[in-house]
Design a protein around this nucleic acid. Structure first.
Lengths: 216, 216
DNA sequence: GACTTTGGATAGTATGACTGTCCAAACTTG
DNA sequence: CAAGTTTGGACAGTCATACTATCCAAAGTC
């Protein structure tokens, strides 16, 4: 297909597609002379991936470029696949380095060495940021959250993926994370409303729960 | 204290503080003549709040202004407090309107009417976005996640808050949510690494788990 | 052969979040 | 009390990000 058709199918304008080509987010089409190239399904998929990362995941163009590069060279070993996905989706850091205390807490939560993985580092940073803002999270709360997220992770890890080709597996992990993180956070909020409605008695027509708030 | 001291204590530059004053993110100091005003602890707190929302929560200045306005006029009824916090922290929407199917699923998950609350709307949008990107989440998975987030929400709802003054309660809810959302997401990632390490056998020195990925 | 489309290069725009400059009135210090 | 510093307020300038727009000549289409 030509670029105009790619634009139609993805809903992305031609100038923007050219911009993505320039920026290395989209691989070039198959050249057929100086002023002609054809695009295929892989381009449609790539554009949709980019839009998902940008619109849902709020990734910057630079970060998206990192993601597509990692897809082009997925980690050789399966053992690094999750790490690569987490690395690609690490939060924009305006964050300070984690404190040793935060790293200790992380160490206690995951598999050995997890405090050096991208996810462990993220967790340490998040704990550090909370602490710096005066929000302490006690061990009991953290343990509860950990159990909850373990049960979520059980559903996350799809066995089929262990056998898929690395690029596909990596893309699956990245897209799944970007799309389901907001679902999880929204579920938390709905759950807060359920709990507060139950705890403080149902309010009026009850479209919202009574006054409550996240843990200390 | 004067503005220079406010800048020192918060680590925010004077021009930026002036910008926040202009933009209505920071209430004016107590004027003492044409070229003098004094600031107090409430200003320090406010600046820290703004920085937390911007740095950790990635809120735009417009959104932060909404938040501080809602703090100045907290909802009269306790029943609307959580809703106000969720409304203030709704994700930047590049998102399409939720589909009826998504709203049905939300309706089945929370208290009656929850699909009209800010949190329910967020959830419906997140489900819709996932669906549009070809990522279906089955009922069993969603139920598992719901249970997990309910146990998280149990720790979130602090009884003490029901009795705190509305502004304080609202601020507590907002700050807590902004600071703990990243903790939860990072815990999920660490948990994924635990699960994949367990499922596929520990990798090499095991600083990362083997290939796996989020649910289908 | 007239018209349209393309790739490639380059320049321009819109937004958001600051940052810098000026000024005169207060204040502080010597 | 004179010299120098700080302040509030107004306004203009900057920087980064993510596009958009314009040009052009070669290639295709009708």
């Amino acid at each position: 297909m030509r670029i105009s058709e790619l634009a139609e199918r993805t809903g992305v304008s031609i100038p923007t597609l050219k911009y993505y080509l320039r920026e290395g987010l989209l691989h070039a089409g198959e050249a057929q002379g100086a002023t002609r190239a054809t695009y295929d399904a892989s381009h449609v998929d790539r554009v949709r991936l980019v839009r998902t990362l940008v619109d849902v995941g709020r990734l910057s163009i630079d970060r998206v470029r990192e993601v597509v590069r990692s897809l082009d060279e997925p980690p050789a070993s399966r053992h690094e696949l999750l790490g690569a996905a987490h690395e690609a989706l690490r939060p924009h850091v305006a964050a300070a380095d984690p404190t040793p205390e935060a790293l200790d807490r992380v160490r206690a939560l995951g598999p050995p060495g997890c405090e050096h993985s991208p996810a462990g580092h993220q967790l340490a940073q998040a704990l550090t940021a909370a602490g710096a803002a005066g929000w302490s999270i006690d061990d009991a709360t953290l343990a509860t959250w950990q159990r909850a997220m373990l049960s979520v992770a059980e559903t996350d890890v799809a066995p089929s993926l262990a056998s898929a080709p690395p690029e596909e597996a990596l893309r699956y992990a990245i897209v799944g994370t970007v799309l389901t993180d907001p679902v999880l956070l929204a579920l938390r909020r709905v759950a807060q409303e359920s709990v507060s409605a139950r705890r403080l008695g149902p309010g009026p027509p009850a479209s919202r729960g009574p006054a409550t708030s996240p843990a200390h």
